[in-house]
């Protein structure tokens, strides 16, 4: 450690690790994991999302889960919360989950065909 620049470089690296605790994420992905969600394969979706985020080294996204939101027939459901806007995707498989990251989160394009219409 020879300068403030060295320190700040380390700081930046460290912040990636603690970001989850600060509530400063850019995007929040929520997977609904009630019994219905789990029975329809939500666990595999979570694992797929995590692996894709890890692979792409995306750090400003939090992945969290919630209970049943009352649309059991659309499970597994993935909700993407970005710039204050919520998008709910229904009947998501692990492959589709990976595409949501690629298209919605990386390329900023909502995957229209899977969106649950209100």
């Amino acid at each position: 450690m020879k300068s403030l620049e060295d320190l700040r470089a380390l700081k930046k690296k460290a912040q990636e690790k603690t970001k989850l605790r600060e509530g400063q994420e850019r995007v929040k992905i929520i997977v609904t994991m009630g019994t219905c969600g789990i029975a329809s394969g939500a666990r595999d979706v979570v694992v797929a999302l995590m692996e894709e985020l890890k692979k792409r080294n995306i750090t400003d996204v939090t992945l969290t889960q919630t209970g049943c939101i009352g649309m059991c027939e659309k499970e597994p459901i993935v909700i993407v919360e970005k710039e204050g806007k919520k998008t709910a995707y229904g009947k998501i498989s692990p492959d589709k989950a990976v595409q949501i990251i690629n298209q919605h989160i990386v390329n900023n394009q909502v995957v229209g065909e899977w969106v649950i219409e209100p």
């Binding site: 990636e16 690790k17 989850l20 605790r21 979570v46 995590m50 985020l53 890890k54 080294n57 995306i58 750090t59 939090t62 992945l63 969290t64 889960q65």
Partner: peptide
């Protein structure tokens, strides 16, 4: 870097 979905303190 490792990605964790939850941190439990």
């Amino acid at each position: 870097m490792e990605f964790y979905r939850n941190h439990i303190l």
